[in-house]
Design a protein around this nucleic acid. Structure first.
Lengths: 165, 165
DNA sequence: CATGCACGCTTGAAGCGTCAAGTGAAGAGG
DNA sequence: CCTCTTCACTTGACGCTTCAAGCGTGCATG
């Protein structure tokens, strides 16, 4: 899987853009994770799981759906749900309709946790991402982001349509 | 550290931009890591370490400098360099000028590794990030990226000036 | 209705990152 | 000089993610 010798190097302009993005790629997730960890004691992935459940009808989802929604492997989700179960925020039930599915259900405590956690997280996103940008840049970011996302994973849902999965 | 009740929610436009970025944040690093793992059997962090050394005079750097350059903790770097040492790509020496510094030196094999790996990585960056964008968008990305990076870490170097550290 | 297969999920082990404690070298203060 | 502190780094333990193997359920096939 090697690449042609004589690699096409990056121009100054390209390099600048790439370094800027690389910096965001490393630091923004760390900052977001940090906020959740400090203020709520959960990881971003755990938040996504809880938030996903909270927005779902019956606050219930199949493990496999939930894994996709939270962008993680089924195995990872299984481990995480085990932990969330121990903390009393999620419950597992076999799907009565089909025994090989497992349903993850958000408990009342879990709902409380989401309600308590979401505003801080949204605020962090606002502070770190949205507020530094102009409205024009926010629109530009949408376009740039979805182009890159499409290049990375052409079959992946484009983020704006993620919910129709 | 809670946030005012009555959270300011995200507008449609903001939500779209955030979802697009979030998608990139999760998938692009995974794709980049995957390429390096498949084609070279190393992680992105290991690549950064090797590449950092290869671009440094004498192919040598202090551990602490290298840690900053590669955006990781000193502890993490120490563990990684241990592994790279075992693979024969890096050597450690105490700094003759000052015994409490440790110098990491890229071996000839390490140099070969970088030379063999870099083109593929650059190509991946080009394919996944640069080619999907217009020249205008590449410039927009620079500005957007550095604004977010600055919001995340105001004291951090802005990426274009990273090298003068 | 029995057998085999595929699917959804779980589990345990291995690897990596983080955190906190520990080591040894430089320099500061008496 | 000797001691005390600081600094750069290393180390080991713990937690989380990944990977591969295993389990049980439902469906298809005979």
């Amino acid at each position: 899987m090697d690449v042609p010798r004589e690699p096409r190097w990056l121009s100054e302009e390209e390099m600048t853009a790439w370094l800027a993005l690389a910096s965001v790629l490393i630091r923004l997730p760390a900052a977001l994770d940090g906020q959740l960890q400090r203020d709520a004691g959960i990881s971003h992935f755990e938040y996504q799981v809880l938030a996903g459940l909270s927005m779902s009808p019956e606050r219930t989802m199949r493990m496999s759906e939930l894994a996709q929604l939270a962008d993680g492997s089924l195995s990872r989700l299984s481990h995480v749900v085990s932990r969330l179960e121990k903390r009393g925020w999620v419950r597992r039930t076999p799907d009565p309709a089909n025994g090989r599915y497992t349903l993850a259900v958000l408990t009342d405590d879990g709902w409380e946790k989401v309600v308590a956690t979401a505003p801080g997280h949204v605020e962090a996103v606002r502070t770190l991402v949205l507020e530094p940008l102009t409205r024009t840049q926010i629109r530009q970011l949408s376009e740039i982001g979805s182009r890159i996302a499409r290049a990375v994973d052409p079959d992946g849902d484009c983020p704006t349509t993620r919910f129709r999965r």
